[in-house]
Design a protein around this nucleic acid. Structure first.
Length: 427
RNA sequence: GGAGUGAUGGCCGAGUAGGUCGAAGGCGCUCGCCUGCUAAGCGAGUAUACGCCGUUAAGGCGUAUCGACGGUUCGAAUCCGUCUCACUCCGCCA
């Protein structure tokens, strides 16, 4: 959510921001109009309330002295009636401002490259050497099925399409990756491990920006104001919702493992095979709450924290900077980490790291005080996937595959896996 | 799921025959004084949001907030209704 007062004082800057990110600059004007209407009604009703408060005092004083106050009371009866009507109007107009505010996207940071779409994203660096195979590399779903470590077909029977079931060393690999990633971020990067509920309420989803606009992307619990979380970002970012932190608590760095549920509405036909696009996947998510002036440095560090996992897993990847036109609703700046998938010969997004500045903080009431007695300020929030586990499994399978269909396990994972290779179990 | 109790400021805790209560008191915290350290003591201060005025300042004015919402009333922390949450006991369960 943007700052309505900032919009009032420099509308032109916000219009330009909307244009940069290919959003409708008229949103700004709609907002300004609604805001003006609200403030007009508010000023009027507050004036009347002030009058009423003074009159009430006078009435009380008269009564204490045993004097008759029925004339004043009759007068105030009328004023109160007007106040009641105006209050209703103020409520409606304020709700309108709020409604608009909740649907207006964030403004890109100055440093973000201009662009219209995905095609204009800018590669920042490539890391690691792509593996060279003396054979035709297989896609991960073929490897996995041959190794009998993932069962797509039966998962469909049990639940439905776009669900999966891990089995044997596949299940172990999922678990190993979760443990490895959490351990890594906790001990090397100073994050606090969190294990949240996988269901969140509407307030939390409004806080992170998933509601009111993107309800369709989530699974809602029938008849309840609850949703399956699309990412641990939701519970982690909302952890301190409506609280005021002290400056010394910052930066807050949280690492949470969770299942993530996405309805993938509108993605029919995309990535229908394998572990890339599912209704449920697991992920270790990193969330930071930081002092505003540090948030862009913290973003760079966040990208590094996530990239270290790929380094440790010996997976080749690239870092790309997302252009203004491809930026998400709530982001001011974003980097994606894309892992190399040899069978398809493409880089696939495996992590997304973004700064939201005070966009979420404003929605979720995340504030801090610089010092005792200072006015509360909004923190900046950031998050990044560190990493998406399903896609990591896919990358390990494809990059680690060997001529006989077995898969080499990265050294860092061996202690967690208890083996350095996955091969077909012979029964 | 059944029965009961309760929700006041950073914390504890007053305040129910409605009026001067944003709210006594204590603790904590901040600043100052004092004390040859520490402790104690003394004084002052110590919520948030929004609107208006003001140089997007200092500051001033106003409105709202005593779990939430709604009602009664000229006026509600105080009365009425609904809801939410917490705690206790019973049942059930991992």
């Amino acid at each position: 959510m943007l700052d309505i007062r900032a919009i009032r004082s420099q509308p032109e800057w916000f219009r330009r921001g909307m244009e940069r990110r290919k959003a409708d600059a008229a949103l700004v004007d709609a907002l300004l109009l609604a805001d003006k209407r609200w403030r007009e009604a508010l000023a009027e009703v507050e004036r009347l309330k002030s009058q009423r408060n003074k009159a009430s005092e006078a009435i009380a004083a008269k009564k204490r002295q045993g004097l008759d106050a029925s004339a004043e009371i009759a007068e105030m009866r009328r004023v109160s009636e007007t106040i009641k009507q105006l209050d209703e109007q103020v409520r409606e107009r304020e709700a309108e401002v709020q409604r608009l505010l909740l649907e207006v996207p964030n403004i890109p940071h100055d440093s973000v490259p201009d662009g219209d779409s995905e095609a204009d994203n800018v590669p920042v660096r490539h890391v690691g050497d792509k593996p060279v195979f003396p054979f035709e590399p297989k896609p991960h779903w073929e490897l996995a099925e041959a190794l009998d470590i993932v069962d797509f077909e039966r998962a469909v029977k049990i639940t439905g399409s776009r669900f999966v079931l891990y089995k044997g060393l596949g299940a172990r690999l999922e678990r190993a990756l979760a443990n490895f990633m959490l351990d890594f971020h906790v001990s090397n990067h100073g994050y606090t491990e969190m294990f949240p509920a996988f269901i969140a309420n509407e307030e939390s989803l409004v806080g992170t920006g998933n509601l009111p606009k993107f309800g369709e992307d989530m699974f809602k619990l029938e008849g309840l104001p609850y949703y399956l979380i699309p990412t641990a970002e939701v519970p982690l970012t909302n952890y301190y919702r409506d609280e005021i932190l002290s400056a010394r608590q910052l930066p807050v760095k949280l690492a949470g493992y969770s299942a993530c549920f996405r309805s993938e509405a509108g993605s029919a036909g995309k990535d229908t095979r394998g572990l890339i696009r599912l209704h449920q996947f697991q992920k270790v998510e990193l969330v930071k709450l930081v002092a505003p002036e540090t948030s862009y440095d913290e973003l760079e560090r966040l990208v590094q924290d996530c990239a270290r996992i790929l380094d440790a897993l010996e997976l080749p990847y690239r870092v790309i900077e997302i252009c203004t036109g491809d930026l998400g609703f709530k982001e001011t700046k974003k980097y994606d980490l894309e892992v190399w998938m040899p069978a398809q010969g493409v880089y696939r997004e495996i992590s997304s790291c973004a700064n939201f500045e005070d966009f979420q903080a404003r929605r979720a009431g995340l504030r801090f005080r610089r010092e005792e007695g200072a006015r509360p300020e909004y923190v900046h929030t950031l998050n990044g996937s560190g990493l998406a586990i399903g896609r990591t499994v896919a990358a390990i399978l494809e990059n680690g595959q060997q001529a006989d269909g077995s898969v080499r396990i990265p050294k860092a994972l061996v202690p967690y896996m208890g083996t350095d290779v996955i091969r077909r179990e012979v029964k």
